[in-house]
Simulated scan of single mutants.
Amino acid sequence: MTGGYGGADIIKDCTIGVDKGEIAVIVGPNGAGKSTAMKAMLGMLTIRKGHVRLGDKDITALTPQARVGEGIAFVPQTSNVFTGMSVEENLEMGAYLRRDDIRQTMAQVYDLFPVLKEKRRQNAGELSGGQRQQVAVGRALMTRPSVLMLDEPTAGVSPIVMGELFDRIIEVRDTGLAVLMVEQNARQALEIADRGYVLVGGVNWREGTGEELLADPEVRKSFLGG
């Protein structure tokens, strides 16, 4: 993918991929094009060159809403819950495109995130930051996606909560979904990643398994504190 926001290209021949049952992580310095790459895949900006494919289907020309219909779910970094609604109402909002019985999916979300079942009548705005993130991920799962995209899911949470969120993300992957996330906490994210991409200046600087990138001396020196 090559593109930007109308001026100079921010991502240049950038390639990102994730398979079902995998976690892929995009890391890199601020301004590297991580969020731009994700927005391009979501259809939130026009790419000048390249393609976005979901399975065997080219979805490059589809709107963001049409991509949701094809199986992509996105959790933004901020403003990702309806604070004045209950947890359960938030989850129901995630199923707004569906016309079938959502109760089984709701039960699956509560199995993944037991704290949400416990607080299902409580307003999302009253929850902790980590619990709100679980609501946001749960709402995305209500669309029954094949790909779950997360933009910095651990931003602003404590190390303990970060670990808990990553544990839940692993559980989501283990249900067979493809999980793609942009993450500033590079070391912790690569520890759970099946594959990782390091973007620098909008290009693929390094890619490999999470384990390979953690062991790469240049990655360690540049992004992981040596």
Rank of each mutant, 00 (worst) to 15 (best):
M1W: 11
M1H: 10
G4F: 05
G6Q: 13
G6D: 15
I10Q: 07
I10V: 02
C14A: 05
G17H: 13
V18Q: 14
K20R: 15
G21T: 12
G21W: 12
E22T: 05
A24E: 07
I26G: 07
V27K: 12
P29N: 13
A32D: 15
K34F: 00
K39A: 08
L42N: 00
L42E: 00
G43Y: 13
R48L: 06
K49Y: 14
K49W: 15
H51N: 05
L54C: 07
K57M: 12
K57R: 15
I59N: 05
L62N: 12
T63I: 10
A66E: 07
G69Q: 11
I72L: 15
I72T: 11
F74P: 11
V75N: 06
V81Y: 13
F82L: 11
T83C: 14
M85V: 00
E88H: 02
E88S: 02
E89D: 08
N90G: 09
N90L: 08
G94R: 01
G94S: 04
A95L: 04
R98I: 04
D100L: 07
D101T: 02
D101G: 04
T105H: 13
M106Y: 02
M106G: 00
Q108S: 11
Y110K: 14
L112S: 14
P114I: 09
P114L: 09
E118K: 08
R121C: 05
Q122A: 10
G125N: 02
E126W: 04
E126R: 01
G129I: 00
G130I: 01
Q131P: 03
V135Y: 00
A136D: 05
G138A: 11
T143R: 13
L150V: 02
L150G: 04
L150M: 07
T154K: 10
A155Q: 02
P159C: 09
P159H: 11
V161W: 15
G163H: 03
F166V: 12
R168D: 14
E171H: 06
V172C: 12
D174Q: 03
G176S: 09
V182F: 13
E183W: 11
Q184R: 05
N185V: 01
N185M: 02
A186F: 01
R187I: 12
Q188W: 13
Q188P: 10
A189Y: 07
A193V: 04
A193K: 01
R195N: 15
G201K: 05
G202H: 00
W205T: 06
L213C: 12
R220H: 12
K221N: 15
G225L: 06
